[in-house]
Computed example of a mutant assay.
Amino acid sequence: MTMQPPTGFGAKLRGLPPTEQLRANWAWFLGLGIVAVVAGLVALAITEFATLVSVVTIGVLVAVVGLVEIVLGFRARGWGQALYWEISGLFYVAAGIFAWAEPVQASVVLTLLLGAGLLATGIVRAVAGFRHHDKMRGPLILSGVVTGLLGLLIVSGWPANGLFVIGLLLGIELVFTGINWIFFALRLRSHA
């Protein structure tokens, strides 16, 4: 019995170099970009819902990771770290259940953590920028100031902004990611 070479869409591309494979699929990248932009615009239109969906999804994922950690802890009883894994897993499961059961309150907590994290990151970047004495000094300081101001804006609006910040940032990220894919696809097409 002899093997026949595969036919169809994938078989046509297998013999091409990677760059040519990308160019041959430019329309798929364009489609991905359009879908991402549309999803981002929808998230921006319904930021509260996008926030709640994000928080519930995060809660489910965190709970699953916690369960896996607990199972690994029980399976690794001979190891010294097993009890720590089990305790850590319990915390993950509890946090996941909280996010799933109380997504509004969880979004408020996550918004505060996000804002505080951005503020702290901005301060660290700005300080690091002032300590640099090369070409990276300006961009690092600018990045720190912008990130810090975003964090300060989120923290100063907390808790009132807890139900829309995550959805707003998700929407903005999806729109910019989509635009990036669209430009990538059009560039591939122009070089085809």
Rank of each mutant, 00 (worst) to 15 (best):
H132A: 13
V145I: 14
V165E: 02
L140P: 01
L150K: 00
R137N: 08
G138P: 02
T147M: 00
E173Q: 14
L152Y: 03
L170Y: 06
L169K: 00
V175P: 02
S143G: 13
L163Y: 12
W158C: 10
G138M: 13
V165I: 12
L153Q: 07
G138C: 07
L174W: 05
S143F: 05
P159Y: 07
L150N: 00
V146E: 00
S143T: 10
V175L: 09
T147W: 02
A160V: 11
E173A: 15
K135H: 12
V175R: 06
G129T: 11
L168I: 12
L152P: 00
V165F: 03
G148F: 07
G148P: 08
H132S: 13
G151N: 08
T147Q: 01
N161F: 15
I154T: 08
L149E: 06
E173N: 14
K135T: 12
W158K: 10
K135G: 11
I141P: 00
A160Q: 13
G157K: 03
L168P: 00
G151H: 02
V155C: 14
L140V: 15
G171I: 01
P159N: 09
M136K: 15
R131W: 04
G144I: 02
S156M: 11
V127M: 05
L152H: 03
H133Y: 06
H133S: 12
G171D: 01
V127T: 10
I166S: 00
M136L: 15
W158R: 12
R137K: 15
I166G: 02
F164Q: 06
S156T: 10
A160N: 09
V146P: 02
G162N: 13
L168G: 05
I141A: 09
V146L: 08
V145N: 00
S156L: 14
N161T: 15
G151Q: 06
V127F: 05
F130K: 11
G171M: 00
V155R: 12
L149S: 08
L140K: 11
V146Y: 02
L163E: 15
A128C: 10
G148L: 10
S143R: 08
V146F: 05
L163W: 13
G157C: 06
H133A: 10
L152I: 09
H132C: 08
S143H: 05
A160L: 12
G144T: 01
R137A: 11
H133D: 15
V165R: 00
I154A: 10
M136H: 13
G138T: 15
V145M: 06
M136Q: 13
I154G: 04
L169R: 02
E173I: 10
I154R: 05
T147E: 04
P139E: 15
G157H: 04
I141E: 03
L149P: 04
F130G: 15
L169H: 02
V155G: 13
D134W: 14
G162E: 04
L169C: 07
I172W: 06
L153G: 06
G144V: 01
H132V: 11
S156R: 07
T147L: 01
V165N: 02
M136R: 14
L150C: 02
G148H: 08
D134Y: 05
R131C: 03
L174F: 14
G162H: 04
S143I: 05
V155S: 13
E173V: 12
P139C: 14
S156N: 06
R131K: 10
W158G: 08
R137V: 03
D134K: 07
